[in-house]
């Protein structure tokens, strides 16, 4: 009886940790996607340098593009979140994007470290639970 209860407790605990690991995994994916967006923005800002009046294609979804001309390569509009944005020169915009990207990368490191800890715990506890399950089953 005692082993059975211990096993139940371990299984519950493992399930909770597994759920947490899934949530952290989702957070990692979402952070990765956002970081990749920031990298695209950085690459774009670097790529437009000296390309004033160049013909560009702006994606509008469904694999379709508008044909446009670059009006300015000195300034861009940068979003701050909460529905606010402002015009910045390319240097400031790059700096702002790099800073936000670094914050995201730091957050991802923290999430990754927590995920590692939880995964390690699950890997350690799972064989214990397995052994206990066998013990309980053979005792019945």
């Amino acid at each position: 009886m005692e082993d059975k209860q211990k096993l139940e407790q371990m299984v519950n605990e493992l399930n909770i940790y597994k759920q947490q690991a899934e949530v952290l995994q989702q957070q990692m994916e979402s952070l990765k996607a956002t970081i990749s967006e920031f990298t695209t923005a950085e690459d774009t800002l670097t790529g437009i340098k000296g390309k004033e009046n160049a013909e560009t294609l702006v994606p509008i979804g469904a694999g379709s593009f508008l044909i446009t001309e670059l009006k300015s390569t000195d300034e861009v509009i940068v979003g701050f979140g909460a529905g606010a944005a402002a015009k910045k020169n390319i240097t400031d915009a790059k700096e702002s994007i790099a800073q936000q990207k670094k914050e995201l990368e730091d957050a991802m490191k923290k999430v990754d470290s927590n995920l590692q800890k939880i995964t390690q715990f699950i890997m350690q506890k799972s064989p214990e639970a397995e052994a206990l399950l066998q013990k309980v089953e053979s005792g019945e």
Partner: peptide, 27 residues
Amino acid sequence: KETEKALEELNKVEENGEVYKTAGNLL
């Protein structure tokens, strides 16, 4: 947090600087 951060960034913009707000896909 997001709104406070946006306010912080907005305060850095010069007085006559151009600011925008989003309306769906539009700025």
